[in-house]
Design a protein around this nucleic acid. Structure first.
Length: 290
DNA sequence: TTGGGTCAAGGAGTC
DNA sequence: GACTCCTTGACCCAA
């Protein structure tokens, strides 16, 4: 069975889990609390909508609790929002919805600059803590390996060294290939050395295939998951024809979808559709899921 | 009221 | 060296 999902917001309702504020506004805790409350309410609304529409995956925005990992964050967010997160976890569980997060491009545990990995780990610990409170073990933190810093081996070694002690993060973490730097075989190798799974992004793989067909790439990444508790995750998107290579399109090109289905064969997978059209991009694909 | 530029943070690539 | 892409919204400012 193939299951589909979408990230951060729902354009139909509409609702978002990614409202934020400027750093300068952190000095106003009431304003911050209001933004967090809107994000949590947005998440609950989206989960109910997903349950009604049979969509079993959703990726929360990284700004669910804006600046939670920042030293200037003004209150104990785990104490204040823990009950809400536990209730959201219960709602997701009873609705059969798997949640994920995708820390952004600034998260670089392998950077040679000392302060960058430290800030990155703080952000990853925040994401892991959110999932601890949500309480669902099938949750996933999706991470790119970041830059190569002109020395792939040294960067990989730093990346592994920084993350290996982070058992609370590794519990949820999965590595994803990217469109420029790290290929599927490279992230699978690094993921294995950390004892975590790897996600193949079919769009990124097309731009940075490392000499492998999509089918061969899936042969490497799918076994890194351990179903039924951890169904394999994949990413699917298409090129925006009006923009530079790497820019995501509003919908998914059906040719890309069929290529993924063909490469998957009989394998089961959870497919996160990274389209600008969010949930609107799922309907044309759903008709093809048998 | 609108549209543009910038905002916590990194890095790689194009032109 | 400036701009764009990975993502989305906030918020200030000029017109």
């Amino acid at each position: 069975m193939i299951r589909l999902g979408y990230p951060t917001q729902n354009l139909t309702i509409p609702a978002s889990t990614n409202r934020t504020l400027r750093l300068a506004s952190l000095g106003d805790p009431e304003k911050l609390r209001a933004v967090v409350w809107e994000n949590l309410l947005g998440l609950e609304t989206i989960l109910r909508w997903n349950a009604e529409h049979g969509i079993p995956l959703f990726r929360m925005g990284q700004s669910l609790i804006p600046f939670a990992s920042h030293p200037a964050f003004p209150y104990d967010w785990q104490a204040e929002h823990g009950d809400d997160l536990r209730e959201i976890g219960e709602l997701a569980r009873t609705s059969g919805i798997r949640l994920s997060m995708h820390p952004g491009q600034f998260i670089q545990p392998g950077s040679p600059k000392p302060c960058v990995p430290e800030r990155s780990l703080a952000e990853l610990r925040y994401a892991a803590r959110v999932f601890d409170l949500i309480g669902n073990l099938d949750s996933v933190i999706v991470l790119h390996m970041g830059g190569a810093h002109e020395d792939r081996e040294a960067t990989t070694a730093r990346f592994v060294e920084k993350l290996r002690p982070e058992s609370a993060v590794l519990r949820y973490l999965a590595l994803e290939n990217d469109e420029r730097v790290w290929t599927v075989p490279e992230i699978v190798k690094t993921a294995r050395s950390l004892g975590i799974p790897a996600i193949t992004d079919s769009f990124h793989h097309g731009l940075n295939p490392g000499g492998l067909t999509l089918e061969k790439a899936l042969d490497l990444s799918l076994p890194s998951w351990d179903p039924p508790d951890a169904r394999p995750k994949l990413h699917l998107s298409s090129q925006d024809p009006a923009k530079q290579p790497g820019a995501h399109a509003y919908l998914v090109d059906l040719q890309d979808w069929h290529s993924l289905l063909s490469a998957l064969g009989d394998h089961e997978a959870d497919v996160m559709v990274e389209a600008k059209g969010k949930e609107l991009a799922l309907a044309p694909l759903g008709a093809w899921i048998g």
